[in-house]
Design a protein around this nucleic acid. Structure first.
Lengths: 115, 115
DNA sequence: TATACACTGAACCATATGGTTCAGTATGAA
DNA sequence: TTCATACTGAACCATATGGTTCAGTGTATA
């Protein structure tokens, strides 16, 4: 029996699982943007865009600040460090598995039913 | 107006957004496993575990093979390359943003309402 | 052959997601 | 003051998620 938690990774990977939200990050990399300008760019209602931004904000990937009537979104200082670390560590894990001898052997004598 | 797609990243990031599934990848890194052994290790019903494995399989992160009555799960050869690339590219993007001059300036003269 | 084991599928449940519309509120400009 | 802009919140909708139970099916084993 093993225990696993770490909500931050849950939130950020979930945030990254949507193409629109990855696009928003792309866009904010080219400069800060208001909700309205993002909504225009991604052909979506203001309300819809606000929800996406909130998801990114909860994940710490984006920070927003409202000045006057416009809310400006920018990339969060938190960055993607934790995510990069998890991915890198496990990418090595994947590779290690395939270099293992028993893998090569079972690859050679590969038979048996599948579905 | 911008168009964004790429279902593979959608699927894999979504798969990685659950701590149990990240744990399964961890576990498979230490050796192949049956649905039953995974279900035991994560204190979950067989049916529940099967669903998690299916999510990982759809994302290409895990492959399974049924021999006799046991379905063996192993890490997929696809790996985490595409995910690592996206994360790395955007991690640099985050950092570039913070090195930009206007960031430093606006950080200094930081005022204005927030919520 | 009888029994146990490993999985599978259908059905259900509560909650979350990704989107919308509609009706505000607050702010800036004329 | 009036009007447009920029956002906000509530409500709704269809679908997905993460889990369960229950009733199978197929495969080993005694």
């Amino acid at each position: 029996m093993v225990q696993y938690e770490s909500p931050p990774l849950d939130l950020s990977f979930a945030a990254l699982s949507d193409a629109t939200r990855r696009g928003i990050i792309d866009q904010l990399g080219r400069g800060d943007a208001s909700i309205t300008s993002l909504a225009d760019k991604f052909q979506m209602t203001l309300t819809g865009m606000k929800k996406h931004v909130q998801v990114l904000e909860r994940a710490g990937l984006v920070v927003t600040q409202k000045v006057g009537r416009v809310r400006t979104c920018k990339l969060g200082k938190r960055g993607l460090k934790a995510e990069a670390e998890w991915i890198e560590a496990h990418r090595r894990l994947f590779e290690a598995r395939f270099e293992a001898l028993d893998e090569i052997i079972s690859e050679m004598k590969q038979e048996g039913s599948d579905d």
